[in-house]
């Protein structure tokens, strides 16, 4: 193992400290330097993964198949998300009607539950009823784009001959928590309808679904990006 590659410094916490004096201070200084150095290495590695992921994303979206997957998956996910949070339904009865609340800007920022904000308009067109909630639409677009880009990269890398260390299933698995997070706002109602006991723990866990989905989607995207050979895209 090379020095600094995970090895504790001689002045690290396991060594018996000297009684004050120059040697103790020097040891602490060396330890701090080593920690800074370790952080720099981690940041460097992370930066490399991000950079590599960026290249992979640009490469995937630059290809026709990647772009197609991205658009299709993002759109499908967004529609599913809006349906899951009950902003989109086929409950209309024909005709076109629009209703906007009195103070749309102020209303849009009123939080109703974890990651669920107030809707400001009802748009009814034929059989479709859409409740326009700007914050949740933005959230849905963000989640959908993350799922879409992850799947696009993984599909492109799976199809590319020199970058087939990755299966498309990685992207699909990344999309699952994001999809589940769509139920976060209406989870309790869903539990009532399907008759599942909603304990305090389940309710609390539901409030963490959106951030967990974002973290898992970002993590998967970086993992996918780190495994792809950018030169092969």
């Amino acid at each position: 193992m090379s020095p600094g590659d995970g090895e504790e410094s001689p002045a690290g916490p396991d060594r018996e400290p000297t009684k004050g004096g120059i040697r103790g201070e020097a040891g602490r200084a060396v330890g701090a330097t080593e920690r800074r150095s370790r952080w720099r290495r981690w940041i460097g590695r992370f930066g490399g993964v991000v950079s590599r992921t960026g290249i992979a994303v640009r490469g995937a979206l630059g290809r026709r198949d990647g772009k197609g997957v991205f658009v299709l998956v993002t759109a499908a996910y967004l529609l599913t998300y809006l349906w899951a949070i009950r902003h989109l339904a086929l409950s209309g009865t024909g005709g076109v009607e629009v209703f906007v609340v009195d103070d749309p800007l102020g209303t849009a920022l009123e939080q109703r539950s974890a990651f669920a904000y107030e809707t400001v308009a009802v748009i009814e067109a034929g059989p479709v009823v859409y409740l326009f909630g700007p914050v949740n639409l933005l959230l849905g677009v963000g989640l959908a784009a993350l799922v879409g880009v992850t799947l696009a990269v993984s599909v492109v890398s799976w199809r590319g001959p020199a970058a087939c260390r990755l299966g498309a299933g990685a992207g699909a698995s990344a999309g699952l928590p994001g999809l589940v997070s769509g139920f976060a706002c209406c989870g309790p109602q869903l539990l009532v309808v399907i008759g599942v006991q909603a304990s305090a723990g389940v309710i609390a866990a539901m409030q963490w679904m959106v951030p967990l989905a974002v973290v898992s989607l970002l993590g998967t995207l970086l993992w996918v990006g780190s495994r792809v050979d950018p030169t092969a895209m």
């Binding site: 009950r86 339904a89 609340v101």
Partner: peptide, 12 residues
């Protein structure tokens, strides 16, 4: 005063 879809009952 609220934007709601009164066609749908979330519970049944």
């Amino acid at each position: 005063g609220s934007a709601r879809d009164y066609n749908r009952d979330p519970y049944g």
